[in-house]
Nucleic acid binder design. Structure first.
Lengths: 228, 228
DNA sequence: CGCTGCGTTGAGCTTCTTCAACGATCGTGG
DNA sequence: CCACGATCGTTGAAGAAGCTCAACGCAGCG
């Protein structure tokens, strides 16, 4: 039996009767992954879904030529691979731990049973999926309609908004991974960071980025301005 | 009161007790839109969601410079704008009728009540959203990892698979709209179609495209081949 | 200490977009 | 029924953004 206190605060399980946690605990199992370990491949049969406990996981696609596009970076508390539960039965992308990670795995059938008995759980899951859809719509817009400087600016502003240290963004992932998340390659990202520094929009200290010109970044992100 | 026979066959409502249809009919309303009419704008408060009855609707984003990216093309039977029901309250993109269209509108609260009382409806909605997430993952992959010829080839093969007339694809939308759906512009699409014709992968007769080399298109779509 | 992965920079090239012009098609109103 | 305008589609030439390839510095870790 597994301690699921972490999960009680989780958005997905909010409002769930206490008794149900025991039932959940009896059907789920903890799994650990080392940095770089694959959790599942695209196309694998989806036997269940996961909730992050600690560490960090990336969901990504990879092309024939080896270029990678990260779809999500998952942090503690977030569920992933829920899609395989409700539509089709295979995972739509790959998942890899990008640091040592601990996750909880919920087998498909047992969870599906519970969800159909618990309207609040179903509603929470609907909210989760809807949120994901929003993120995806945003991602498609960014990749298709904005140039790399705009995407980077939007990313920095978003990270800054969610960070405690206003004005200083601590990149949670390597710059190579960030490039892949933004739909570009490390070389391009590096050049654009350099340009932003030269234009005094930001300063870089390794993995920390200091935001000097918040308004300038907003204009870049909105496409009102360019980094010529 | 509205006749909802069309909806009984709808995936979303499959398995719903007959009595619930009366309840649904009492809360929903029919709406008509002319070609080119806006159904809602991105950011509008989402008062409910829609199901297509007839016609065709596009969901799209638009950039500062006016470039458009189509996220979905909706055909009869498909629901849209469900996201606004469950997460946030605003529509995440714009919707426009691209032909004369009829839709049914379901107000938020009434539908939300019903869904929390009907597990099967909740499960169907989860399946719908999950399917959308898959589509989006696929779209991000295509736009980010494939070049335009690859995306076009993938589109043609998909349309052909879902069409009755094997080997002949009837484009359901204009080529300009198709360009926007594929994340490019009409000029580029036109040039690539011309190249594909020259390489005898396809033939074009207006809005009909004849597939001459199915395997060649597959190789293009998978990135194993290029249209040099 | 050396290896490996990360990050940076330069040069050249490919793909795609932009801008412009023009032909074809379609729907509509006279 | 024809004529007109609007939209759509095509093609050319030029330019820009980003990618590829290559080289190299650097840091962390075994």
């Amino acid at each position: 039996m597994l301690s699921l206190e972490h999960l009680a605060n989780n958005n997905l399980f909010k409002g769930l009767p206490a008794g149900d946690f025991d039932e959940l605990a009896s059907i789920c199992q903890e799994q650990k992954f080392k940095r770089g370990e694959i959790i599942f491949h695209e196309g694998d049969v989806g036997l269940g879904f996961y909730v992050m406990i600690s560490g960090m996981v990336k969901i990504f696609k990879i092309s024939m030529e080896g270029k990678e596009q990260i779809l999500h970076i998952l942090k503690p508390g977030e569920p992933f691979a829920e899609v395989a539960l409700f539509a089709g039965s295979s995972y739509p992308a790959n998942a890899m731990a990008i640091e040592k990670s601990k996750v909880v795995f919920f087998p498909r059938q047992a969870f599906s049973d519970l969800i159909s008995r618990r309207p609040s759980l179903a509603m929470n899951m609907l909210a989760t999926l809807s949120f994901r859809l929003r993120q995806f719509a945003h991602m498609v817009e960014a990749i298709s309609l904005k140039e790399v400087p705009g995407r980077l600016a939007a990313y920095l502003l978003l990270e800054n908004k969610e960070s405690k240290t206003k004005g200083e963004v601590h990149l949670p992932i390597t710059k190579s991974q960030l490039a892949s998340l933004l739909g570009t390659i490390p070389e391009t990202l590096s050049r654009i960071l350099a340009k932003m520094v030269k234009q005094e929009l930001i300063e870089t200290k390794g993995a920390t980025i200091v935001i000097l010109d918040d308004e300038g970044l907003h204009e870049l992100a909105e496409g009102e301005y360019r980094l010529s």
